[in-house]
Design a protein around this nucleic acid. Sequence first.
DNA 1: CTACTTGTCTACCAACCGGTAGAGGTGCAT
DNA 2: ATGCACCTCTACCGGTTGGTAGACAAGTAG
Lengths: 203, 203
Amino acid sequence: MSRTGGEKRRRSIVEEAIRCFGRDGYNATSLDTVAKAVGVRKQTLLYYFPNKDALLEACLTAAGATVGEAITVALEQKQTPETKAEAVVHAVFELAKEFPEFPMFVREASRLGPDAFDRFSKVLEPMRERAVAFLEAGMDEGNIRKQDPAMLLFTLYTAVIGYLTEASVLNAVVGPGKSRASLRRREKEVVSFVRAALAPPAA
Amino acid sequence: MSRTGGEKRRRSIVEEAIRCFGRDGYNATSLDTVAKAVGVRKQTLLYYFPNKDALLEACLTAAGATVGEAITVALEQKQTPETKAEAVVHAVFELAKEFPEFPMFVREASRLGPDAFDRFSKVLEPMRERAVAFLEAGMDEGNIRKQDPAMLLFTLYTAVIGYLTEASVLNAVVGPGKSRASLRRREKEVVSFVRAALAPPAA
DNA sequence: CTACTTGTCTACCAACCGGTAGAGGTGCAT
DNA sequence: ATGCACCTCTACCGGTTGGTAGACAAGTAG
């Protein structure tokens, strides 16, 4: 029919699959659902990917590359050590703004087990190492409160992903009185939280 | 056959369903899977609950009651204001220790949307209000850093649930070098994090 | 003994699942 | 024009899904 061309189609399949997997979960998403979102028949998916699992792997790799790229771009601007963490948070929130299902997909990746998450995070490995080194250096210089840097990184991760994915909880906790917190407000909250987590005990 | 009796059977169905829904997600769990876990045929489930959705509602209500009870018991012991938060964290971790799928089910509840999460959290509503009041009082007295108490509560929630559910991430971030962090160690990390989040800026 | 309630079961259904087989259309190189 | 690689499709398969219909066993009250 329309012959959209191979690589372009492949990318659009992966993008829609990430949306569906993030929204409904991998196991609860049928190939038909993804195909309908792309605007194509299920068998076209199976032409590009031998089976559902291969499609998932492609999504995991692509997602890792996407977030890696976003963070790299954010850190390319010359940053003072103080603003680095906030720049990363901002980049992730920007990504979530124009791709709301993305954070949910990341959480789904971790839910699917170590293998799936490793495939997602493999690209991010060097950035993780640099982040740990950055945190350790900051601790040695006294700019960051002394603690296990890996655990600190994990705590920051859960805070960011939590603010981005637990919308139901946020509404329930903040209560019906206040208007539902916008992404912008949540980013401010996360940033202030990150500052508190990094700040040394005495100012 | 064995006629285990109505209410007992009903409870065991709900418990196993929480396990399955937490482990695999609601949409990806079949009634047959739950039935097999209980040791009974699918139609027996449908005798107690008219359909899958009704079973989910029962699970949400039961889960809310369980965590509410655990927290209530933890706070019954006379606590100093300083140890209250840690007592709640400890109670939740104890619950997770002997019921590992429980935190995952809570996260699944939030993933299923506001209606589902409301059903879970309805029982917890008065405790939420008391917690906010407690935090506000602490802020007024200068024992807790001034911030939006509802947002603080949400941040604490995401931290606890994150440490309990994101095992894959934890292993990936902490790295293969160290042994995987035990629940006990994670509880210590969460508690120290909670302290940092509550602590006023100058000691 | 009989009638009724409660609980568990077998048998079945239409819809949907992931995946296979293969026809056919389109554009490009020869 | 012809062959071929690329892409999308229809048709189908065996297995699983949530759910219905109803048989049957066991306790219980009269």
